[in-house]
Simulated assay, not measured.
Amino acid sequence: MPLPKEDRYTLADALAWDEQDRIELIDGAPVMMAPPSRAHQEALMELSAQLHAYLRGKKCKVYPAPFAVRLFEREGERPEDVDTLVEPDISVVCDPSKLDDIGCKGAPDLIVEILSPSTTRHDRFTKFNLYQRAGVREYWIVDPVDKSVQAFLLEDGRYSAKDFGAAGDKIRVSVLEDCTIDLSRVFQE
């Protein structure tokens, strides 16, 4: 991988990197991502499975990581000009015009991040603010250690705490009509 090249990296650089390198770009700064834990992957698979089952036959689609999301890319923008690229653990996109061969251009409707020891601060602060600024309608932070979910809903450009769930609870996805996630299946003993 050609790091370090300069102070600012773009989508054009990221597209040239090795596919097994897990790197996000936040305002042109590369952020390396450690491999996820087993608990992280088990939560990811169960959440993705429940969302996929609910969305079968519907317009919205669920995409588990790795899936490139260019939160601020504008129509016709060149890869050399796109400097923010994230790989949320789970993205739900309801507008098919946002999808292309690379991933998603613009804000998904729902993003789920599953905490790992190396990503807790990044997910709770950096990505929280980034997703809020980009207009992601609903953001979930899943903690596999505490076996809990915090759900935030975008209202008037700011996130407000919508729901909190723990192992054994069922939690509603606000941006998907009648969609409920069974956390007892996400946080199995």
Rank of each mutant, 00 (worst) to 15 (best):
S174N: 13
P36H: 01
V173R: 11
G165I: 04
P96A: 09
M32A: 10
D101L: 00
H40C: 06
C179T: 06
K58W: 14
E87R: 09
L130Y: 11
F152N: 13
R38T: 10
L183Y: 15
D146E: 12
I181G: 15
P144C: 04
R74E: 10
K5R: 15
D101E: 04
A12R: 12
D83Q: 14
I111D: 02
H52A: 14
V62H: 00
S148E: 07
D178G: 15
D7W: 08
P66Q: 08
F67A: 06
Y54H: 15
G57W: 09
K5T: 05
E73K: 00
P30T: 03
A167P: 12
D89W: 02
L176K: 08
Y131S: 03
S184L: 12
P79G: 02
D156I: 10
A65Y: 00
Y131A: 01
Q188N: 15
E19F: 00
G168T: 07
W17S: 00
D21W: 03
A43N: 08
N129G: 11
V186K: 03
H122R: 07
D83F: 15
Q20Y: 14
D178A: 15
A166Y: 13
R185Y: 14
A29G: 09
K127F: 11
S174K: 12
L15D: 01
R158M: 10
